[in-house]
Design a protein around this nucleic acid. Structure first.
Length: 748
RNA sequence: UGGGGUAUCGCCAAGCGGUAAGGCCUCGGUUUUUGGUACCGAUAUUCGGGGGUUCGAAUCCCUCUACCCCAUCCA
């Protein structure tokens, strides 16, 4: 598996090291309102994977808070998917609906705290009152109801005394919050629908934002991992848990980018449209990116898991190329699956100089797959080969049978074309050929060199099978909907296959040599009418060559960036800028940053009172100090302008290098210690004596002969590498400028 | 227009101030009775653009740009 850590694993590791949790608990929490797709597989892989990696648990929880959409058939599909992928959830399957009583209690608690109220605005009014992204909302007059009234109303909501939409329970947070989600979010709504588990017991149902965080908490989840679109919901997640003052530890939410793959669609809505519109044959149609679809097509769980591992986990919206997935299934099947001969587009070949019949012993696996097994391949005078394996007027580079080019029948003899028979329309209907009796595979003494070996079947014993050749469902990379459907996404062929394959059971995979991997359809396959699904083609560098030569290579243009306008300075800022550039000789960029930030400016002025080192102070304040201020979100700073001045004084006196100054500053920001004290305690005084530095340089050079070579060969970037090594050896204390010069001299 | 995110090769993706990982794709080559596999090799002087700080910047600072998410009684 992938060794590099993703940000989620790093987070878990960090939390574990900080002793935040004793045991890691994650959860996979789908809403049972549709069939799981490969995006769910990614989530399953992440959640169960983290639990496995860190010796924890992963729960499977059905987030069933919306009875009008959910159904028990979906929970079965979800369970199947997890099991098929090889994971085991901890304990029983959980349901948010199991927590409805507990959730109700928490809601009452919030009401008692004055943090939740029953609102009786209409749906439209609620929307209107919420405001817009740029304008604040306004609070409902019902927010003023007393705790008693809220309690009474909420209980009656629960009892079913009201109709849908009459009341809702809302959190009392902030109607003018910049985060729209925090404008008094709804906690409960009245719904008369029948719930597939709790039946008609409840008249009210909790909203996602209320139920999810608390369900996580109830289950002892530590890391609540979800997709990017919930980033804005994190504030409510934290608000609910914090406001309720629950006993720690509590879970935290982390978001990652959902999976997208080109040439397909992933949204539930679009998938549903395809299924219900009859564009595909059900949720397990092999062209669909559903787990059931991939499974029916013949993908292995291992290949899906490998894929999930390869694509990684990050926060940028991305679209993974299908070829990555296709690679995974090819790679998995290559070492697992027997090779057999199947002719998809049969063309008759009569071997005129052959009489009788024979059986050829043919191994199931090629030389590079360490597996045993073989079968008998019947051979006779009449055989079939694939139409694509004969060309009367072959293009350049064609390796297969032509009127002048012999070819080997895989595992069998070399044949040569003698005559081409055509129908009235000019279509080739048969080939008369001759074979070389002394060219049999394994005992070939003919000395004839052929460029390829092709698949074939004997006419006498071949069986007709149905082969469903699937191609991508959509014709374009980023399909919008059914209008982009590839009309040839399914081609059903009557193919001819060698007899050994037919005695096999369904649910078995093969490689049809030179064609691809195929799967005996687990549902439609019978011995009388065998059906094979194409899983994926083999890599086809010949087909590609042909295609590429036809396609024009399009050149990509580099995008031109346009610079936007910068907001002008106020007169006061203008004045400061003037002073900084003219009087203090700061460069315009630094002066600009300082002048525009009043906090930084006053910090700078104060430091300037302590030390007359305008440029160096300005530099550290606009860069390092600014960063700390951002990180600490203002207020609680551990360092003062005076201390910064002391630090810079040491730099000015060349007691410490700039590099060390940054290190000292970080320490100051963390602990609030005095810069001089830090330098003293850690012995950070700069080493500027060449006599001390030179031996270290020699050591570094001696230890890295290849890099010395590379450097002398012209790789000047390596100078930085050597400087870095020397600095590392001295604990960062060597004067970097001097090291630079000395190293350059040494290596010159 | 407010808030929250994200930008590193054709596609994913490491990287957290000191030599731009890896996989897929692509292109060469070797082996091959699968135009498969395997194996070797090539492919980012540059990290969305522009500035700044530093001996040294993909990494720190400023700024601009592009894209995604948020105004369901969905999740």
């Amino acid at each position: 598996m992938n060794e590099s850590k993703n940000f989620l694993k790093s987070q878990v590791q960090e939390d574990l090291e900080a002793n935040k949790y004793q045991k890691i608990i994650t959860r996979f929490p789908p809403e049972p309102n549709g069939f799981p797709h490969i995006g769910h597989a990614k989530s399953i892989f992440i959640n169960f994977g983290i639990a496995r990696d860190f010796n924890g648990y992963c729960n499977l929880r059905m987030d069933d808070t919306n009875p009008s959409k959910e159904d028990t058939k979906y929970v079965e599909a979800l369970k199947d998917a997890v099991e098929w992928l090889g994971y085991e959830w901890y304990g029983d399957v959980r349901f948010t609906s199991d927590y409805f009583p507990k959730l109700y209690e928490y809601a009452i608690e919030l009401i008692k705290m004055g943090k939740a109220y029953v609102d009786s605005l209409t749906e439209d009014e609620i929307r209107e009152y919420r405001g817009s992204v740029t304008e604040p909302g306004k609070r409902s007059k019902y927010a003023e109801r007393s705790v008693e009234e809220n309690l009474d109303l909420f209980e009656r909501m629960k009892k079913g005394e009201f109709v849908e939409g009459e009341h809702v329970l809302r959190a009392k947070i902030d109607m003018s919050a910049a985060n729209m989600k925090m404008r008094d979010p709804l906690l409960y709504r009245i719904k008369n629908a029948h719930h597939f588990r709790t039946g008609d017991e409840w008249a009210i149902y909790p909203m996602y934002d209320f139920a999810h965080c608390l369900s996580d908490y109830i289950e002892g989840v530590t890391h609540s991992i979800c997709t990017l679109e919930f980033e804005n919901n994190r504030d409510i997640y934290d608000w609910v848990l914090d406001t309720l003052k629950l006993e720690p530890p509590r879970p935290y939410q982390h978001e990652f980018a959902r999976l997208n793959i080109n040439y397909t669609v992933m949204s539930k809505r679009k998938l549903l449209e395809l299924v219900e519109g009859g564009y595909v044959n059900g949720w397990d149609d092999p062209r669909l990116p559903t787990i059931a679809g991939y499974r029916r097509k013949g993908y292995t769980p291992e290949s899906i898991l490998t894929f999930c591992d390869q694509i990684g986990v990050a926060k940028s919206n991305s679209v993974v190329d299908v070829s990555q997935l296709e690679f995974c299934i090819r790679d998995d099947l290559n070492t697992k699956v027997p090779r057999v001969l199947c002719v998809l587009d049969p063309l008759k070949v009569t071997i005129v100089n052959y009489e009788g019949e024979e059986e050829i012993d043919a191994p199931y696996y090629p030389h590079d797959v360490p597996k045993e097994g073989s079968r008998k391949l019947p051979f006779s005078r009449e055989i079939y080969i694939d139409r694509a394996d004969f060309e009367e007027n072959p293009p350049k580079g064609y390796y297969r049978l032509t009127p002048t080019q012999p070819v080997r029948l895989r595992h069998g003899y070399i044949i040569e074309c003698k005559e081409v028979l055509k129908d009235a329309a000019g279509n080739i209907v048969e080939i008369k050929a001759e074979y070389y009796p002394n060219s049999k595979s394994g005992e070939d003494t003919s000395g004839i060199k052929v460029k390829s070996a092709i698949q074939w079947v004997s006419a006498l014993s071949a069986k007709e099978v149905e082969v469903r050749v699937y191609d991508r469902l959509f014709a374009c990379e980023a399909p919008q909907g059914v209008e982009d459907i590839n009309p040839n996404s399914l081609v059903v062929k009557k193919a001819l296959i060698e007899p050994a394959v037919i005695t096999q059971k369904p649910d078995v995979r093969f490689q049809f040599e030179r064609e691809g991997y195929f799967y005996a359809d687990p549902i439609d396959y019978t011995d009388e009418t065998p059906v094979f699904n194409k899983i994926v083609s083999l890599k086809d560098s010949w087909g590609k060559k042909k295609r590429n030569s036809r396609e024009k290579t399009k050149q990509q243009e580099k995008k031109v960036q346009i610079d936007g306008e910068v907001t002008p300075m106020t007169p006061e800022q203008e004045k400061l800028f003037e002073r900084y550039t003219k009087e203090l000789q700061l460069n315009t960029e630094v002066a600009n940053t300082l002048a525009r930030d009043s906090f930084l400016a006053s910090f700078y002025e104060e430091a300037l009172n302590e030390l007359n080192s305008a440029v160096n102070l300005a530099n550290i304040i606009t860069n390092e100090v600014a960063r700390e201020i951002k990180a600490q979100n203002s207020t609680e700073l551990h360092f003062t302008p005076k201390q910064i001045a002391q630090l810079i004084a040491m730099v000015d006196e060349e007691l410490i290098s700039n590099k060390i100054a940054k290190q000292v500053f970080e320490e100051m920001a963390k602990t609030g210690a005095d810069p001089k004290q830090i330098v003293e305690d850690k012995g950070l005084i700069q080493i500027s004596d060449p006599a001390q530095i030179k031996p270290i340089i020699d050591e570094v050079i001696a230890a890295n002969p290849q890099n010395v070579e590379k450097f002398k060969g012209g790789n000047k970037k390596l100078l930085g590498f050597f400087v870095g090594q020397v600095l590392k050896a001295t604990g960062g204390k060597a004067n970097p400028k001097m090291v630079n010069e000395l190293v350059a001299q040494k290596l010159a």
